[in-house]
């Protein structure tokens, strides 16, 4: 589904990603782990099409489509979703109104009719029950005054509403207590099926107890330096990122 080849990217002269290769198939969950500053958020941003980041080399395709020549909104239309590490506030814009606009814009991109108020409401109700989210939250201004946990749940709720092919979760666990992590992970698991895929970006292993990955990749200094099964996450947790660094030194 997603194919990243030799991806190099940076910002303002600074090279951050230095040759990423990654293949994700439908139905799979991949985790990207790595110490702070290794380039995890940069990878997520580049995939989503943030303009500040410049792609220097390489290719990214989603179901054969060249993502790099699409605008961020077109990528969303193609089924890419990014749950932000720091969700953005928009005062005065209700969360419901925002989501309704998003859903209908994506439908428009796909040549589908917009959902009318009744159909939209029905879908909201369904997903609200699935995600265990409070209606009151959705009638408030987008992310304004939301707690950390509420913001992350709102991200996953939007994911449920948009039903993406590929969801990228950027540190969705950061700042959450264990109960909140469980709720968020539960939501993600309910949305998994054989046709979609999830890329979980995280610093810690604990989220992976709940969203169990098929593959774990270690990102270090802009490169994927190690890939393995889910046990790799546990090993990292136990031995810390230093062991990767040491392994790398030895290899040199």
């Amino acid at each position: 589904m997603l194919s990243i080849q030799n991806l190099h990217a940076g910002i303002e002269e600074k090279k951050i990603l230095k040759g990423i290769n990654l293949e994700i198939k439908a139905g799979e969950v991949h985790a990207i782990m790595g110490p702070n500053g290794s380039g995890k958020s940069t990878l997520a941003s580049v995939l989503a099409g943030r303009k500040e980041y410049e792609v220097l080399e390489g290719s990214v395709t989603l179901d054969g489509k060249n993502l790099l020549e699409l605008s961020p909104e077109e990528r969303a239309g193609e089924g890419l979703f990014l749950a932000f590490q720091y969700p953005i506030e928009i005062p005065g814009l209700t969360t419901t109104n925002f989501i309704k606009t998003a859903v209908n814009e994506v439908r428009k991109y796909r040549g589908e009719e917009p959902l009318d108020a009744v159909a939209f409401l029905k879908m909201m109700k369904e997903k609200m029950a699935l995600m265990e989210i409070d209606q009151r939250l959705l009638s408030r201004s987008l992310n304004e005054g939301f707690s950390g946990g509420e913001k992350k749940r709102n991200e996953i709720f939007q994911m449920a509403m948009l039903q993406p092919k590929l969801a990228i979760l950027d540190e969705t666990d950061s700042g959450l207590d264990i109960d909140a992590i469980r709720i968020v992970a539960n939501g993600v698991n309910k949305l998994r099926n054989k046709d979609n895929a999830v890329l979980v970006v995280t610093h810690y292993q604990r989220l992976l107890d709940y969203i169990v990955p098929d593959f774990v990749h270690v990102l270090y200094n802009g490169r994927i330096v190690k890939s393995g099964p889910k046990e790799l996450a546990l090993e990292l947790e136990e031995r810390g990122y230093d062991f990767i660094k040491n392994e790398l030194k030895e290899a040199v």
């Binding site: 989503a48 969303a76 953005i88 928009i90 948009l162």
Partner: peptide, 13 residues
């Protein structure tokens, strides 16, 4: 720009 990008990412031009 982050507000705009956030909307863009959700499919909103």
């Amino acid at each position: 720009e982050d507000q705009i990008f956030y909307c863009n990412q959700r499919g909103i031009d």
